[in-house]
Design a protein around this nucleic acid. Structure first.
Lengths: 171, 171
DNA sequence: TCGTTCATGTAACGAGTTACATGATTTT
DNA sequence: AAAATCATGTAACTCGTTACATGAACGA
């Protein structure tokens, strides 16, 4: 694949748990080629820039398998959640702003769920041919769905709690 | 607070959604002082290194409020989940390894839930005095709990699916 | 005796993000 | 007329992680 194709492959599958900007993809492709894990050939095109098509080498495949089977010692991804950080300092933010942001968060979670559901459905229909990789993609998708559903539920819970909440001091 | 105290404050509260190693905390404290958002005084101690106690300045408070009220335009933290990444490439990993890792993931989620439940309980008992900040801490805690519960549930679902799954080709 | 706590940091590395640059073609 | 798509990247910046360094006190 080319870097550009890789980017859209990211966007259409693992995007919700692993994303990368094009500039990073190009950089990493260059670095992997320098290590002989990848090789490339250039294909000319008319009206568009040349394509640089990468493929994996034998040492690349070995390294891939090696790293893939080396599971992280701690499962849970270390989060840095800017939203929770702000909510933690809730007394410094107006109730109206908090409610607005929570409602926005619900909408965003629901918006994130939609394409995942669509992907799930599309996969279910393709299943027979390529069941093997589909099976695992479905499992990752499942977590994506559960994740965003949890977030939406949580935000609704927060809104409800906020409504019955009357601060002792002013913010 | 000193950098060291800050670190333990992190560990005892926002740790599950925002963590930082000591080296980063010291670096950032230095940078914030250079910007006049913080000031510090040194306190000598016997048998231990001197304490460097930081406090926030007026410009610091203003900047804090400014940044706090500037919510991220997209809510969902961009994830990079090493575990999902590996599962996505499931056909390259043995079924035994996957099952082992999933069981480990369940244990880890349950282990993460425990201290959060304890925190929740402790807060519930302290409530009357400092209800204001407690209220919001409870909400963040709630998401932590829901998050790990979701993860455990998901991993159990995966294990179940894996059991009824017999790959077409070999990995 | 060995690990943990208290308490400071520096240096180097790695990786994610943002901004910049180019340019034809196609869609809205 | 403007924005999106195709397609390449470079440069700079920020920030998180890892390793290194020091040293007393205290509990298991």
């Amino acid at each position: 694949m080319t870097g550009y194709e890789l980017k859209s492959a990211f966007d259409n599958s693992i995007n919700f748990f692993w994303n990368a900007p094009l500039s990073q993809i190009y950089r990493e492709l260059g670095a992997l080629e320098k290590k002989n894990y990848l090789e490339s050939r250039v294909e000319a095109q008319q009206g568009k820039p040349d394509k640089k098509i990468y493929s994996i080498t034998q040492p690349g495949k070995e390294e891939f398998l090696k790293q893939l089977n080396d599971f992280p010692s701690f499962y849970s991804a270390q989060l840095r959640d800017e939203f929770l950080l702000r909510l933690f300092f809730g007394p410094f933010i107006s109730k109206e702003e908090l409610e607005f942001q929570l409602r926005k968060a619900i909408k965003e979670s629901e918006a994130a769920i939609e394409p995942l559901r669509k992907l799930e459905k599309d996969m279910g229909e393709l299943e027979p041919q390529n069941g093997d990789s589909m099976f695992f993609q479905m499992l990752t998708l499942k977590q994506g769905l559960m994740y965003y559903e949890m977030k939406a539920k949580w935000a609704e819970y927060c809104l409800q709690e906020l409504r019955n909440y009357h601060p002792a001091d002013n913010d």
